[in-house]
Computed example of a mutant assay.
Amino acid sequence: MRKILISTLIILFGINFIYAADKVVVGAKAFTEGYVLSSMVSLLLQENGIKVEEKFGLSSFPLRKAIETGQVDAYVDYTGTAWAAYFGHTENIYDPHRLFELVAQEDLEKHDIIWLDMINFNNTYGLAVRQSFARENNINTLSDLAEYINSGKGKDIIFGVNPEYYERSDGIFAVIDTYNIDIPKNKVRTMDAGLTYGALSKGNIDVAMIYSTDAQILRFDLKILEDDKAFFPHYNPSVLVRKEVLDKYPQIREILRPLTLYLNEDIIIRLNYLVDYEGLEPKNVARNYLRGLGLIK
């Protein structure tokens, strides 16, 4: 009886091991964009015959630890997050392609984690104005804004930023210094990050700190000013895959290439908007987008 029991356990363990080895565990960061992007990863893999288990809704550091320890096989992360938060570098790399190369190289060498293609949008900080204000004053870049303010026309301009960005050494006053904007400190007001968009739309402030792929940009029809001196750090996303998994499923690279081919800032803002303000589920938004491209059935 004991031999039968042991044999049965060995068989069951073997089945479970085979099952675990024949699926890819996809993780997702716990915010709208993280859910949408990782849902695309999951759907594309499943469409191409790869079994998937989803572990969605983790914050950055637990999810990062999960891929390092093999509890998660693939998920979407950002170059700037890895460079500063995970790897602890303090030097700012302003060339997005160079930053991607450095992050990818370090992760492969130290953790056997591969970064696939860089996805073509940057979820970073930015400054925005009302579309009407930009049109009326021909302001498209931060240098244009600086020229407008320094000319005296913008002497009453009010900036709105969150308290953290007000205090940070690389925050709003570093932006002001970089672009030589002549504005007194009392013209920079602090408020919760989520409130800057509405305050800008209502005219309570004139320039707002924003996150460049936030759905509220579309909701309030705001104009992101071009960072023409490349001040803001880069947070380009990419799919991270454990090398062991990519060696087993080398087709994953081609399966997920459409994320690089078909995503950009305008598109991801619209997809985020469908979740945050139209109330659609992230997976349904991802599915509908991929179906529209003919990538899944």
Rank of each mutant, 00 (worst) to 15 (best):
S201T: 06
R168Q: 12
L43S: 11
T196L: 14
A208S: 12
E244D: 13
I267C: 06
R135T: 15
Y262L: 10
E244Q: 13
D170G: 03
D192K: 11
F56E: 07
F87E: 15
N204T: 06
G88I: 00
Q251S: 15
G203C: 11
N162C: 07
A21M: 11
F17P: 00
A82I: 12
R168L: 12
K185R: 12
E33Y: 00
I183V: 15
Y19F: 13
N140P: 00
V161H: 01
F220E: 11
K229D: 11
Y148V: 01
L58K: 15
G27T: 03
N123Y: 08
A215L: 05
A230C: 03
V207N: 07
A286I: 14
G198Y: 11
R253Y: 05
H97Y: 11
D221N: 15
A230H: 13
E54Q: 14
K51I: 06
V36T: 14
M40V: 05
T196V: 14
S169W: 06
S143V: 03
K229M: 13
E47T: 08
D170C: 00
L274P: 00
K23T: 14
K55M: 14
A174F: 08
G57T: 05
Y179R: 10
F17Y: 09
V129P: 01
I93A: 01
N272C: 11
G80A: 01
Y273Q: 11
W83P: 01
Y197Q: 06
P96L: 01
D112Y: 04
I172T: 08
E281M: 07
I158P: 02
K55P: 00
